[in-house]
């Protein structure tokens, strides 16, 4: 008895410690964002919302926010349908020996460091700009194309997991009741995949919205994402303005997760 109580206590400490470790930086950022002084030190000399006002006045943050939002929405809107289709093909189509290769190709980007992929894309874009005789780097389409590479693997992974738990008999039952293959897909398969697809939208959006490494080389003047704008700011100044921006970002992502969780229980699909 004593042993098991000790074990439970140790487990509790370990869990609390792990959560503390994960959440400490987030909490620190939020707390720092309301410190009054410029150079972060303890104890704070006072509290103020001045840094939020400063972030608002720096137009590069607002513009970066708008770009990131557009980018994340576009990359999600393109990547999730493509990734869902790819997951369906991986799970269902007769691919034979191709399946393994396709699987690696689709999930591969998850394993490539963002800076590497970003550099490769940069070099490719430079080449491609010659062929099409137009700008690609620093344009929204160029960024969207790059970020679709982030959203597809996440979608494939999440939808594939949903597909594996899907009851094929329900699809057969629909066909048996007279539904043609496309009707079966639209009325049965897709609704049953909904939790996976919703989760894929959420993760795709977040991945794109907060991506720095892949994006770093691909932004251009006047086309900067929020994470890149924050990095640029950091090169000149270190004050709690960044913490204020980060807090807004955290709030947005947190709100998105809460809203999504109301539609599908996230803990069940991820």
């Amino acid at each position: 008895m004593a042993g098991s109580r000790l074990q439970r206590a140790a487990f509790g400490v370990a869990v609390t410690g792990a959560y503390g470790l994960i959440l400490a930086p987030v909490l620190a950022v939020i707390v720092i964002s309301v410190f009054a002084q410029e150079i972060v030190s303890f104890p704070p000399t006072g509290f103020s919302l001045a840094w939020y006002a400063n972030a608002w006045e720096k137009r590069e943050f607002a513009r970066g926010f708008a770009t990131s939002l557009q980018l994340a929405l576009a990359a999600t809107a393109i990547g999730v349908p493509l990734g869902t289709a790819a997951a369906l093909a991986l799970a269902r189509a007769r691919l034979g020996g191709l399946r393994g290769a396709l699987n690696t190709l689709l999930l591969g980007p998850l394993a490539v460091p963002g800076v590497v992929a970003g550099t490769a894309l940069y070099l490719f874009y430079v080449r491609a700009e010659f062929w099409v005789d137009d700008d690609i780097k620093g344009t929204l389409p160029g960024l969207v194309a790059a970020h679709v590479l982030l959203t597809i693997p996440w979608t494939v992974r999440l939808v594939l997991a949903s597909l594996q738990g899907l009851d094929r008999a329900a699809e057969e039952a629909a066909a048996n009741l007279g539904a043609r293959p496309f009707t079966v897909f639209r009325r049965i398969t897709l609704p049953m995949l909904r939790p996976g697809v919703v989760a894929a939208c959420l993760f795709s959006f977040i991945q794109s919205f907060e991506n720095l490494e892949l994006t770093l080389l691909l932004v251009g003047p006047g086309r900067t994402t929020l994470p890149v704008a924050m990095l640029n700011y950091l090169e000149f100044r270190v004050d709690p303005t960044l913490a204020a921006v980060a807090t807004v970002q955290i709030a947005l992502v947190g709100a998105l997760m809460l809203i999504t969780d109301r539609f599908v229980s996230l803990s069940r699909v991820v």
Binding site: A169, A173, L177, M192, R194
Partner: peptide, 13 residues
């Protein structure tokens, strides 16, 4: 044909 499946295969949604 009208089929009844062992798992019932009801449409969950």
């Amino acid at each position: 044909t009208g089929m009844v499946f062992q798992s019932y295969a009801l449409f969950p949604h």
